[in-house]
């Protein structure tokens, strides 16, 4: 773009038009208070794509067959990094509401199976492990199997090593950091061997139904902050695969800004005090 040209401005009506479209596509809703945040990123993309103004940019975004620009925007509008105890209210929901319900219909000798997909570099599955040990009173009564998967093999290697920087653990209460990690030089923290050995890491592409066939009989799946990045068809396939992976009556937790309402009616909506989660019919 020619530097002498003024930066394009986004009117309130254009903001609303974009907001409605983006919501329909991704399920992510921006309040009016997010106007500045959204405008700034829109302007960035308008300039990066040489679109001159909002109108031209929006037409491109709306009609582009590849959907590439929408991808670029989603990346800009969402938090792509993961960390310990992210969206903690869902872990609370797990121990206070979901697991008690599952335990009720399970024999003592049946394992409880929990799957974190995508696990990224391990922050989420290890958080689950810590949360269970700390906050679920009946944790010792059951065998709990924790499986964690991602498409990215290098990130899985990182997860298996379990070394994290200050930022990744900044939401963890200090006593837990001391209890489950050892401090390494240059402000790194390594997760304890016990925890490392309690999570099984595997590689999977969630939209590949034949790969996903091996994943079965889970009681709870955490599938957070992945489906927003998919197009409609891939989301649909992923939802089928998650349905296959769950036991009847099993639960799915999605990310904070995600909802099954843009994906599939396959699951029942369950409202618990802490969160809305989805359940495979029994």
């Amino acid at each position: 773009m020619n530097p002498s040209e003024p930066t394009p401005a986004i009117s309130a009506e254009e903001f609303r038009k974009f907001r409605d479209f983006f919501y329909r596509k991704t399920g992510i809703h921006f309040e009016d208070t997010k106007r500045y945040f959204v405008d700034k990123r829109l302007i960035e993309r308008i300039q990066a794509t040489d679109s001159d103004n909002f109108r031209n940019y929006f037409v491109m975004l709306r009609f582009q067959a590849s959907g590439e620009e929408l991808q670029a925007l989603i990346n800009l509008m969402t938090v792509n990094e993961t960390y310990f105890f992210r969206e903690e209210y869902q872990f609370r929901c797990l121990v206070n509401s979901i697991l008690p319900e599952i335990a009720q219909r399970k024999g003592r000798d049946e394992p409880i199976r929990i799957w974190s997909v995508p696990s990224s570099s391990g922050e989420e599955p290890y958080s689950l492990a810590i949360y269970l040990l700390e906050h679920w009173p009946r944790v010792d009564e059951y065998d709990i199997e924790l499986v964690a998967s991602d498409i990215d093999t290098s990130i899985l290697e990182k997860a298996r090593q379990g070394c994290y920087d200050k930022r990744a653990v900044s939401h963890l209460p200090e006593p837990l950091l001391r209890k489950y990690f050892s401090a390494l030089p240059n402000v790194q923290y390594q997760i304890s061997d016990d925890l490392r050995h309690s999570v099984e890491f595997t590689q999977v592409n969630i939209t590949d139904l034949s790969q996903m066939r091996g994943y079965r009989d889970f009681d709870v799946v955490f599938c957070r902050n992945l489906l927003i990045y998919f197009d409609d068809t891939s989301r649909r396939v992923a939802a089928e695969a998650l349905f296959n992976a769950l036991r009847p009556g099993g639960f799915i937790c999605l990310g904070h800004s995600e909802s099954m309402s843009r994906i599939t009616p396959l699951f029942k909506v369950r409202k618990f005090p802490e969160a809305i989660v989805y359940q495979k019919p029994r």
Binding site: L132, D143, E145, L146, H197, S198, E200, G214, R216, R247
Partner: peptide, 11 residues
């Protein structure tokens, strides 16, 4: 209480 198991379950 946390046990490691092969991901695929016979089920």
């Amino acid at each position: 209480s946390l046990v490691k198991k092969n991901h695929a379950s016979s089920g």
